[in-house]
Design a protein around this nucleic acid. Sequence first.
RNA 1: GCCCCCUUGGCGGAAUCUGGUAGACGCAACGGACUUAAAAUCCGUUUUCCGGAAGGAAGUGCCGGUUCGAGUCCGGCAGGGGGCACCA
Length: 890
Amino acid sequence: MSRYNFRETEAKWQAIWEERGTFRPRVDPDRQKYYVLEMFPYPSGRLHIGHARNYTIGDVVARYKKACGFNVMHPMGWDAFGLPAENAAMANKVHPADWTYENIRVMRGQLQLLGLSYDWSRELATCDPDYYKHEQRMFLEFLEAGLAYRKESWVNWDPVENTVLANEQVIDGRGWRSGAAVERRKLTQWFLRITEFADDLLESIRTLERWPDRVRLMQENWIGRSVGARMSFKVEGRDERLVVFTTRPDTIFGASFCAIAADHPLAESLARNDSDMAGFIAECRKLGTSEEAIETAEKRGYDTGLNAVHPFEPDRRLPIYIANFVLMEYGTGAIFGCPAHDQRDLDFARKYGLSVRPVLWPPGLKVLSDAEAEALPAGERARFDRDPVQTLADGRSVFHVGNTAYDDTSLAEYDYDLGDLTEEVRLSVNRAKDIAVAALADRDAGEAAITYRLRDWGVSRQRYWGCPIPVMYREDGTMVPVPYDQLPVELPKDIDFDAPGNPLENHPTWKYTTCPHTGQKAVRETDTFDTFLESSWYFARFCSPQAGTAFDSDAVGYWLPVDQYIGGIEHAVLHLLYSRFFMRALQRCGYPVGKEPFAGLMTQGMVCHETYQGPDGGWLFPEEVEHRDGRLIRIADGAPVTVGRLEKMSKSRKNVIGLESVVDAYGSDTGRLVLLSDSPPERDLEWTESGLEGAWRYVNRLWRLVDEPALELPPPGTPAPAEFPAAALDLRRKVHQTLQAVGEDFEGFRFNKAVARVRELSGLIADFTGTGTGSESAWALREALEALVIMAGPMMPHLGEELWERLGHTVLLADTPWPVVDAALTVEDRVTIAVQVNGKLRATLDLPRDMPKDEAEQAALADPGVVRALGGKAVRKVIVVPNRIVNVVA
RNA sequence: GCCCCCUUGGCGGAAUCUGGUAGACGCAACGGACUUAAAAUCCGUUUUCCGGAAGGAAGUGCCGGUUCGAGUCCGGCAGGGGGCACCA
């Protein structure tokens, strides 16, 4: 019995693909293009088998689309700037560049082991000055276009590492690496004006039809459009006005206070003469931004002593507080508080004894005054703390706000009347909002406004291993962009990681320069860009990776957008939103790109593995443990091992399976098959040794099926016989049905189903081999085996090529088109029809296809099983669904 | 708190879009063949219950609805997962 030698075979075909340039497409306007891309990796060390899932999925799509006749581009590169390189530099005394390029070398070799259909001639690394010089130019153009700016803002500051941390690098209020409590610090930072495109980014999500709904929803929520009003209050005794944003202008009559953020300019100016107030503001700033801190933080306020004047009732005064729950970064940094209809405002009002005045409630209820509510028995009164709507013991349905705000926005009854603009009762909340806005506008006290949750993108990082921001600051304080002809501003190589802080800041000479216009002394910007900038345009650079400018118009015009992008859900917002913004910004600056970078998106699930812990609680690698006498033990000393839960493969838990260990023992095709067959791609997948063995069994079964065919096959290209024996015809039908279905499965990323169908067909072919005779059967067998190999090809490309060659072909499988499906064969001429009696299955009938309804009905009623189930009862009605089911109702 | 998704055998999953034979395909398990033995390979069984069999009953998290017919559609509940979050 022959056994598949994957070692030789995989190396052989990888060399042939490379040598023939099988996967190196050129721009060809006569052919339809297809651009497949997997999110490029950060070169952090070694890939494990979990990483391979992403690349395998992309490879199946790329190879399948190529077989379908598309001009396929499938590139790969390296997201090469980032913090881990600096950590390694500090820990191991190795230069970040050396560490990065060594990792790239190792990981490139690992990817090549997998036999992925990459065009390696397009490879790029973002830390290469030839790459980032274009980014520096883009930034300067953004600056000219007003899309980049510098401002002071509050940031997460890690006092141990002396750097800003991104929000996602702050875990429970502490730096993810140092463990130090993060401080809020005001720093001058560079920002990209992503909010400029907030509306377009939101609106265009609708056009991304081949994105998962989940991701579209997450971006919608992230952008967070809120429709409401900006209102301006007179401040008693002062010239300035207080501007607030609200989504509920209809509740303005219920306002009982105003509150401003601790960082609000008004608060800052008042605090200059009030040390108590300044102390309160400082405390607010200390408050952590972690989830936990926010949840447990008490609503606190500081009365400024100022009052705002109610726009509709000039006699009413609303005290202005500084409040710790108002954010300067959202809206105008100021609110009006309407306790009856907002829970936070209610908590605040109860704490500071402010009035609670409901202005709307569900229609038909009696509203209890505070005095009336007080008069109720304590137990009944307390019920209002949970729900403002209650039915009292005497049967009355009443409304009174206790400690739960009424924020329902269904049909409402309002207690106020904005003149001839309104009916006084039973308004829809949306209509009431419009009326309130119109009334505010009449009094010159407000206008409709839209606010987004989205904030501008802070891109400054106090790090070395990133793209330098190409500006300098003259002695007189003026910011000067580095002239285009002086780009790139390269990172210095000689750096010292022993001193704390940013090595660029500490470098003895690098930052000192002169103004190109005046010759004055100047210092360079020592911050570098957030590494998300590099990943915001790399997919476009792949179109023309050697071009002297960032993009070659013809290449970009032909290849973009990416037709199919594949990556993890963790980038649902960050990278995918930044890239959408970047394309818009580039387009505005005249670059030849469209506004949507990724026409299709698929987010694959994680690869998980059991975790193992020794008696001391330390994590163990899977290869450190084994089953012995039904127990799991540590190989080294026989100590018992605890099996932990299934978790994403990660170095920290040690539940990783090395990519080489799989490829060495079973070959890359077997590993790829496991990654494709065990779960739908968007769901998590559990990696198991038995799954791998099962895939290996199939690889060999397929090998033997083709390598030792039961009949002597006619040469390739032999014309089809005119007639086939029944068994051969049945096989041909199944072959064409499977080709059709597997093609559809590939289109829809249903690789697990494609594998199931291919395995099913393999079983049928194996059975056929034993029974068929004659040249017609041999021809049908060749057709079936070829179809099998073609379908397996995108998933197991080395095995596919080898079998294709053994079938006598000289053209590569990778260059072989997907077969034309014979539509006449995909339709069965007989169908199995289920027969139900009163909805329960009683028989199945094998009938000719498209049998007239009355004949099918007769056949069903004649079936002995049906007769038995009817038990002599009269048939009341028969429902016949052609080619599917007959339901007899008795 | 707001928004979204999921729940099918011992396990991964199919059938869900478009209501029409629930459990494809695989893993694991059990039984068997081959072998001195093992590995490899092959064959069979495998939702549960009753039955020797033929056959029958129940069954897709729970409760209810629509329908000749519901895993699939609608309403409610429970459990699990995810996103956002002092966002006014």
